[in-house]
Every structure is written in C-alpha cells, then in structure tokens.
Amino acid sequence: MSIQRIDPELCVGCGICVDTCIMDVIRMEEADHKAVIKYANDCMTCFCCELECPAKAISVSTQVKPPLSWG
C-alpha cells in the first residue's frame, strides 16, 4: 500500500525524497547514507518522491486502503 520500496542498490543518497515528502515518511539512514521508509502508514500516496527521485529508486503503489470502505 502506498510507498512500497526504496531500492538501496539504486539510491544515491541525494536526500531529495527526504525533503520532498510532506508527511515525513522518508528519512536518511546515517550509517550508509541511503533513504529509508520510516513511517509508511503516513504516506499520502502523492507520488512526489517517485517523481523527483533522480535514480528512479522509489516505487509507489496506487493501492490505498481508506479507513472507511467504499460502497
């Protein structure tokens, strides 16, 4: 659901996604200087991290589960 994965093989540690994420889902792992998903539940599925990642390391799913089922 929502942000799925940041591929550590592709991530270059630029930090653009860390700045871009409005909901503070992504943080920089200091040890290996790679971006990691820290608060997946707060992802608002805006796709901005995926859009802005220069290394195409991030995949966001379109699947969301709202707190109230539809219909």
Binding site: F47, T62, P66, W70
Partner: peptide, 25 residues
Amino acid sequence: KENEVKRSGIYYATVTGKKEMMWDG
C-alpha cells in the same frame, strides 16, 4: 505534465481497467 499523466484517471482506466469511483470522501 510529466508523471502527472500516470496519476490521471484516463491513464488508469486504460491501463488498469478500473472504473469504480470513490464517492464518500
């Protein structure tokens, strides 16, 4: 523009075949 197209309804309707609308929210 750019990847916005990916988020458009037309794109998803054509690629995914999904049609059902959310209406509560």
